[in-house]
Every structure is written in structure tokens, then in C-alpha cells.
Simulated scan of single mutants.
Amino acid sequence: MAPRVGILGRGRFGGVIAGLCVRAGLEVDSTGSGDADALARVATADIVILALPLGRLETVPPHALAGALVVDATNYWWELDGARPDLEDPRTSTSESVQRWLAESRVVKAFGHASAWELENLGRPAGDPARRALAIAGDHPDDVARVGALVDALGFDPVPIGPLAAGAMVEPGTETFGADVGAEELREIIARFPRSQRGRVIARARGVDPSRLPALW
């Protein structure tokens, strides 16, 4: 049975994902964070996609999404979100910050390392050799599989990369962010992340050798 998708955020990014869902024949509902009745309706969806600016996360009442499977498609941008040392901290990931706020939800990281334009224009049917891949990070295999099925339905190859903490590998400043590559190349990028500049920054902040980063995820 096709999932019903709820989208929290009515900006450009959320609108593109809503359009992809409609094109795929999925039932979709969207709202901003300020409409309590609409938020309650969206929260009952099988998958809720968080497409708000990350700096507005705390306008979302955690209890409203209690028990929901939430896809974190956000990124931290200081120009938009303001200076937030908690979101800049390389000892954690922004998706883990989302999970801490939405403590009663199950958070999976996906979609955020592609732009709205890329999502709108680069989707391809399954099996197309030019199909782009999207990374997915989450702590619960069943949730990762459900989000992977949605990614596939919207025209992209899903590539699980590890638990939610591994979402640090797809944030702005990483090689993965904005990479228009297929599944095999995406896996190669993820595999070499510990040797990347961002990987070394994270390893230094956490007091470990870069080669040990995969064990921390």
C-alpha cells in the first residue's frame, strides 16, 4: 500500500517534494508550522517530511509529531538560521539535533543533500543508468527501508549509509552535498569520507583518528 506523505514546510523545497509525490501517485498533505489543525492532520501521515528551515525547528511542538516517522530534509545555514553554535558543533550532526528535539519521533535523514532544482529535474525511472542516488541515514532498519521505498518512488536510488549519526556525511561542506552521482559512486564517496577535509575536522573535534569515524556512526 502506497504511503501517505505529510510535508511540514511550504517553501520551495517542500513544494518540490510535494509535486514529486503527486507525480508518483501518492497522497500528500502539507502545512507550515503555525497551523495547529493542519499540523495535526499532517502528523497522521505514514511519513512526515521536515522541510522547514532548520532554525525554525523549535516552532514545531514535539508532542505534535509523537510516534511519527519523520524525514529530516533540513540543513543548517547560518545566513538563514542565524549563528547557532549547537548546530555548528562537529561533535554531533544536525539530524541528531532534530532527533533530540523530536524525542518521541523516529527521525531519518534523507533528501537534504540535493537541491530543490535537482530533485525536481533529475528524477529517473528505476533502472535508468543516469539515475541519481540519495543517501539515507537512520537508526531503525524498517524506517530506513520505508524511506528508501519513498525515495525510489520519487525517482532516485536510495543508498543507506548507516545510523542517524552518519547524516554528518551528507551535510553542507561534504563531498556528498550536491553530488549528482549514481549509487555506486555515492557509496565510494561515503567510503572515503573519513579521509576528506570534513571527515578530518569531525575526527579532530571528537578526539579520534579519522579511520575510526565509521565505528562512531
Results as ranks from 00 to 15, higher is better:
133 A>S: 12
119 L>N: 11
122 L>S: 00
156 F>P: 02
132 R>H: 03
157 D>P: 04
149 A>Q: 15
132 R>Y: 01
188 E>Q: 15
135 A>P: 02
168 A>Y: 13
122 L>Y: 10
157 D>I: 02
137 A>E: 02
189 I>Y: 01
137 A>C: 08
145 A>N: 05
169 M>Q: 14
166 A>Y: 03
150 L>N: 13
140 H>N: 11
167 G>E: 06
155 G>N: 10
168 A>E: 15
123 G>A: 12
181 V>Q: 11
172 P>H: 09
132 R>D: 00
185 E>I: 00
171 E>R: 09
147 V>F: 05
145 A>E: 14
142 D>P: 00
139 D>F: 04
141 P>W: 14
190 I>H: 03
169 M>Y: 06
142 D>F: 01
163 P>N: 14
163 P>G: 15
140 H>M: 04
121 N>C: 04
177 F>T: 04
187 R>I: 10
144 V>Y: 09
183 A>I: 13
143 D>G: 10
141 P>S: 11
184 E>G: 07
119 L>R: 05
172 P>W: 08
144 V>P: 08
116 A>E: 12
126 A>Q: 12
119 L>Q: 07
114 A>H: 13
162 G>F: 00
146 R>Q: 13
188 E>V: 13
174 T>C: 09
123 G>N: 09
147 V>M: 08
168 A>T: 11
147 V>A: 09
184 E>F: 02
115 S>N: 01
161 I>D: 07
149 A>K: 13
178 G>Q: 05
184 E>W: 01
187 R>Q: 14
163 P>S: 14
158 P>V: 12
